[in-house]
């Protein structure tokens, strides 16, 4: 059985305690949360939670049903196949000694990301993309020396019909 990655997009009441109900459901029933993002939608009464979970198919079905059972959950979408776009952002603080500065900037250029903060010994790089792009960039920057890293987790939306 394969533990595939599943992206769940959940619309919920924007109320205190709702996130706790959802994270509590995952921890209480032994489901995984790989990443979790939450913010208000255009309707301030509704928030969207994007959760990436890895589980076998029957378990994912059960997760979706359990989520739907929560009173504050309005709708649960599972994003699958190529029918959605997903992005993640990371800020990477990388060692920038004079001998590495040119190389870092070249990598930043190739990955079409940005240097958003410069210090005497570091660059902070902002990168947006799929998980694969982020991990490729991190692989290249690692030998130079990553001081700190922060990632947002995946956000995703369905593509509309063309």
């Amino acid at each position: 059985m394969n533990h595939e990655k599943h992206v769940l997009s959940i619309l919920v009441d924007n109320e205190p305690g709702v996130l706790s109900r959802i994270s509590g459901l995952f921890s209480g029933r032994g489901y995984n949360i790989d990443s979790l993002c939450v913010a208000e939608t255009t309707d301030p009464a509704i928030s969207r939670i994007t959760i990436v979970t890895s589980a076998e198919m029957p378990v994912v079905e059960q997760i979706k049903k359990q989520l739907n059972k929560l009173i504050n959950v309005i709708k649960v979408y599972e994003l699958t196949g190529s029918e959605f776009v997903e992005r993640e952002m990371a800020l990477i603080k990388v060692n920038a000694q004079p001998e590495h500065r040119a190389e870092i900037l070249r990598i930043v250029d190739i990955f079409r990301c940005k240097v958003v903060d410069v210090g005497l010994t570091h660059y902070t790089v902002e990168v947006t993309g799929t998980e694969e792009k982020l991990s490729a960039l991190i692989t290249l920057l690692k030998p130079i020396g990553i001081k700190e890293i922060v990632k947002t987790g995946v956000v995703a939306l369905f593509r509309d019909p063309k």
Binding site: Q62, N68, K69
Partner: peptide, 11 residues
């Protein structure tokens, strides 16, 4: 009446 009861333990 509860969809989570279905397929939970027994297919």
């Amino acid at each position: 009446i509860d969809p989570t009861s279905i397929h939970k333990n027994i297919p």
